[in-house]
Simulated scan of single mutants.
Amino acid sequence: MDSGAIRRRLGVLLTVLTASGLLAVAAAGEAQAADPSSCTGRKIRTFSFSTGSVKLYKSGSYLCAVTVPRGGSGKRPMMVSLQARGFEPVVDKGQFTQHAGPVRSYVGHRTVWIKGSVGEGSYDSGGWKRY
């Protein structure tokens, strides 16, 4: 095979690999957009309160939290906050129908402060806790 044929085959191979990589990235983005309430990892705690609950997930050195309402339907004020000690809190707050969040933060070995609310009910870890 001459060098021109090798270059052409390498060019075709590079084009195919690039296209398949772009399709994989696009498919992953669509999967994430299809289920915005999901946190990766395993659920480690559920903090229940009068109008809902905060679900906490762990994946490696990351925590993820979601606030979900208890019963009812329609838009209502919801909030979820996850703060690793030494960092700013990661907050999702607004009028939602199904959930607030997910919020995700690197925690490493740090303690965290977790808050969540649905309407008038709320949860507050009340201090720095290790999960």
Rank of each mutant, 00 (worst) to 15 (best):
Q95L: 09
A100M: 00
V107R: 04
T97A: 11
E88Y: 07
V90E: 06
H99I: 07
F96W: 00
V90Y: 08
R110N: 13
R104A: 02
V90W: 01
V103S: 05
V112F: 06
G94C: 02
Q83N: 07
S105C: 10
H99A: 12
Q98S: 13
F87K: 15
W113I: 09
R104S: 13
Y106D: 05
W113G: 06
K93A: 03
T111S: 15
H109V: 15
V107Y: 03
H109Y: 14
F87L: 13
V103A: 04
P89A: 11
V91E: 04
G94H: 02
F87H: 12
Y106R: 09
R110L: 13
G101R: 01
R85F: 12
R104C: 14
G101T: 04
G94N: 00
H109G: 15
P89G: 10
F87A: 14
Q83W: 14
G101W: 08
R104P: 04
H109E: 13
L82E: 04
R110E: 08
R85L: 14
G94S: 05
R110Y: 02
V91F: 03
G101V: 01
Q95F: 01
R110K: 12
P102L: 10
R110I: 07
T111W: 03
R85P: 07
S105G: 07
G108A: 13
V90S: 08
W113T: 00
G108L: 11
V112E: 07
Y106N: 11
Q98A: 06
E88W: 09
R85S: 15
R85K: 15
V107L: 10
W113Q: 06
A84S: 15
G101E: 02
L82M: 11
Q95Y: 02
S105P: 00
L82P: 12
R104N: 11
A100S: 04
V107Q: 03
S105T: 08
P102I: 09
F87Q: 14
R110S: 12
Q95N: 07
R85E: 15
Q83K: 13
Q83E: 15
G86A: 14
Q83G: 07
P102K: 01
H99Y: 12
E88M: 07
